[in-house]
Amino acid sequence: MPPQAQQLLDALNQTIPLEGYLIVGAIMFAIGAYGALVRRNAVVVFMCIELMINAVNLSLVAFSDYLPDAGGAGAGYAVLVIAVAAAEVAVGLAVVLAVYRSRKTVNVDEVNLMKW
């Protein structure tokens, strides 16, 4: 094995620092927040919320792997979050369907009866 190749392989085999995962999670959270604030379609807003939840999950599991005292409990929390998110999707889509049935639209802008 030539030494430069070995060096390259060693460089490539470095462990990822914890900040890496967390920053990816932060960026994904920000993207999800942007989408949840800006899109007009209620279902798309839902999908962006799911993105945010996944970003959080990623952070949790990253902590569970990297922190020595936790005993991997982050992964357990992540499982529970997945369960709750699944339940939320079910109920939320049921609500969207109900709203669609009465108003014939999923445009969030038009669901504004609480306006002053």
């Binding site: 462990t15 914890l18 599991v61 990297y66 020595p68």
Partner: peptide, 8 residues
């Protein structure tokens, strides 16, 4: 003090 390897 953190390093990978503690996950389940």
């Amino acid at each position: 003090g953190t390093g990978p390897g503690n996950g389940p």
